[in-house]
């Protein structure tokens, strides 16, 4: 650089001005051109090496790191976003699953209730049917028993009348006698007894 030449010539003049350097501490402040040139050399070499080799590498490494950090941050943000989405999705799914589960439970409970009601109704119906059948049987039995008693009473009445009167009776007599006898006998108690009382029904069912 011609600049350095300028500086050197400037300094040469300066040195000639304050040249006598041996008295006291003058040499401390009087410029020394040779030393200046050495300084420029040392500084120039340092500047060259740092500028050409050191600084670009450091800058590049720092840039690279900054880029890496930027990327890492971006990546982290992306990952976080994804994770958030995933979490949201899982939450939604969980909510859905819970709703479904509740639904299932409700339905199952309802089904169970329905089933219970149904079976209770069926049991009731069956019991009622059974009781009705029993009642019917008892009535029929009672009727049959009453008929037999009626027949027996009629026969007894005829036989007793024949024995008393020593004569056989005409069919008209028979009818009259029977009707009379039957009119006298009170069947209401029997009929009331056999008219589907729980006792009779119970005994029947056994």
């Amino acid at each position: 650089m011609d600049l350095f030449g300028d500086i050197a010539s400037f300094l040469l003049i300066a040195q000639e001005g304050g040249g006598e350097e041996d008295g006291g501490g003058n040499f401390l402040v009087s410029p020394n051109v040779g030393l200046m040139i050495w300084t420029l050399l040392a500084f120039g070499v340092t500047l060259y090496l740092l500028n050409k080799l050191a600084f670009p590498r450091i800058a590049e490494a720092l840039d690279r790191r900054r880029r890496a950090i930027d990327e890492s941050i971006d990546q982290a943000e992306r990952t976080k976003r994804e994770a958030d989405e995933l979490l949201e999705e899982y939450r939604a799914r969980l909510r859905e699953a819970r709703e479904q589960a509740e639904d299932i439970v409700v339905r199952a409970r309802r089904a169970a209730d329905a089933l219970a009601d149904q079976s209770k109704a069926a049991a009731n119906r069956q019991r009622e049917e059974l009781m009705a059948a029993t009642r019917r049987e008892i009535e029929a039995e009672t009727r049959r028993a009453l008929d037999e008693i009626r027949k027996e009473v009629a026969n007894l009445t005829v036989a007793a009348t024949e024995k008393v009167t020593r004569k056989s009776l005409t069919p008209d007599d028979h009818r009259r006698l029977i009707e009379e006898a039957l009119g006298e006998v009170d069947f209401s108690a029997l009929a009331g007894d056999g008219d589907g009382s729980p006792r009779a029904g119970e005994r029947e069912s056994r």
């Binding site: 040392a42 070499v45 340092t46 080799l53 600084f55 450091i58 590049e60 890496a68």
Partner: peptide, 22 residues
């Protein structure tokens, strides 16, 4: 001293810049 300063400055910076670690 100038040469030492030159050597140390350049040496340190070059050494560090060569082994820049992430």
């Amino acid at each position: 001293y100038l040469l030492i300063a030159c050597a140390l400055t350049a040496g340190t910076m070059l050494l560090i810049s060569k082994r820049m670690q992430q």
